[in-house]
Amino acid sequence: MKIENFSYSYQYKNIFSGANFYIADNEMNFILGENGVGKSTLLDCIANVDGSRTKEFIGFPKPQRIGYLSQGNNFENDLTVADILGFMKQVHDVREFKLPSVIQKFYQTRFGSLSGGERRILLVFINTILDKGLYIFDEPEAGIDGKHAVEMFSWLRGLSDIGKTLIVTTHQLDNIRDTDNVNYICNEENILVGDFVKVKNKLNF
């Protein structure tokens, strides 16, 4: 999957100008960059939110085949975690799953009563049990403590282990392996693409 010569502007501001991205199939891919460089905008375009994907996006699956967890995603506050997981069991395209102990702890709790981190853990988990062709996670670790962030990234790794393609934005570089494919957004037109170790060397991280 790749994006060639992509330009995008929002409210008279150029976000991307002739930018190129590469996404490796069946692997975990990272999109990195400072706050406000357009990572979430790019993910919305890849996921084709409100038909925003243009012909520059090559080889990406249809939105129906994409699982997408953006930053502000939520569930209805009155539903309990048990209600939400019960709903997931009825949805088509959900793989068999075993409930992690971290979620079992708040199984009967209302979504509205969960902490920000617990909500995020639940949302990431239910996106990993979907059977999709491409998974997109926008800062999945936001608000989650280090220990649970490691566990959560192991769920994501589990998806790439079974041949799924993932695109993840993150600010926690510890969770990236040297061999992972990285697209680092330097500015609106300059994107560094390659293994994390190469990108790190170029940027002197």
Binding site: L69, S70, N74, F75, H92, D93, N127, L130
Partner: peptide, 17 residues
């Protein structure tokens, strides 16, 4: 309400439409 709190987006991608 679903749209403003992000649930509509979540749900759309979960169930695919």
């Amino acid at each position: 309400s679903l749209r403003e709190n992000g649930f509509l987006k979540t749900l759309s991608y979960m169930i695919g439409s």
